[in-house]
Nucleic acid binder design. Structure first.
Lengths: 158, 158
DNA sequence: ATGTATGCAAAGAGTTTGCAAATGG
DNA sequence: CCATTTGCAAACTCTTTGCATACAT
């Protein structure tokens, strides 16, 4: 029953702490905990969602906000804006790879797209003198499941 | 001294009121005023920015929010999320054309990109059974001006 | 006339800030 | 040791809601 989608064994934990140290951030319990929650998340999570998943041992919600701000600054996480004024975050992998999602307008499920076309546009921007370039891109649609069910039951994923 | 960037002559005003009526929305003074501000805006504006630009004759800020919600619902405006948790809006043209921007990390200036590569991705999503598809895409970077000035003066555009 | 839209007040929600105490390297 | 980080409380900002009044058609 334990999720094996993400990485939550000791070796992965070591690797995350390695990335923390390498980023110049101190290796604290709240930060390890936030990283661990993100590591096993099946989709981007908001600060509150992360805090909830930390359970009884949770640090203060404010600390989650501060961790995420730091993680974003050093490139450990990517921020997503899915339009519900709720910033969501996901762990970047070591290669700097990141994802874009389709968000269902009905069930709010989030499906990764696994493509990233704007990269050549970043090249063009670089040629125009821009530096330190990144981008956001999300899709919004009614997913096949919700289109068929006119009266969808419980949302697939929130 | 009057800006002629946007459309604020009487003919354009007529055309905007036409679009209002055609959308099934009542032709009220606050709505005309919000549309007029958007029509002459050189970049997407937040509710508060719109309200400020309405000057002494401004309607209530709440009404601006409601206008924008209505306008978005009927497709008159496009919403942008530039990452500062401040929704910004711009007028769509009649063809449904919309824009994507580069936002400078330093001066927060917004430059339109005039390209829209995700359209073929929407096709792919359609093929996978998704419907009612739209997307968001924004770029973030340090603009040439701010890269050169290590100590930028006043932000170019906010 | 009648449903729609507005203004005002107040609430809701996410996020940020100040500061003293705790902690990591 | 000392700079960084945390917790707690409170503030701040954007946005939404309730309801009586005003307005468009």
């Amino acid at each position: 029953m334990t999720s094996d989608k993400g990485s939550q064994n000791s070796a992965d934990s070591q690797r995350r702490q390695e990335r923390l140290r390498h980023s110049g951030l101190r290796n604290t319990r709240p930060r390890r905990h936030v990283l661990q929650v993100l590591a096993v998340a099946e989709q981007p999570l908001s600060s509150r969602e992360i805090h909830s998943r930390m359970g009884a041992e949770a640090c203060d919600l404010v600390t989650v906000y501060r961790c995420l701000a730091d993680f974003e600054r050093v490139g450990l996480v990517q921020r997503h804006e899915f339009g519900d004024s709720n910033a969501r975050f996901e762990l970047n992998d070591q290669t700097g790879h990141h994802r874009h999602y389709v968000v269902c307008r009905v069930c709010h499920g989030k499906e990764p797209m696994d493509v990233c076309p704007p990269h050549w546009l970043e090249e063009e921007l670089r040629a125009r003198g821009y530096s330190d370039i990144s981008h956001s891109m999300e899709f919004f649609a009614v997913c096949p499941h919700c289109r068929d069910d006119s009266h969808p039951g419980a949302p697939q994923r929130q």
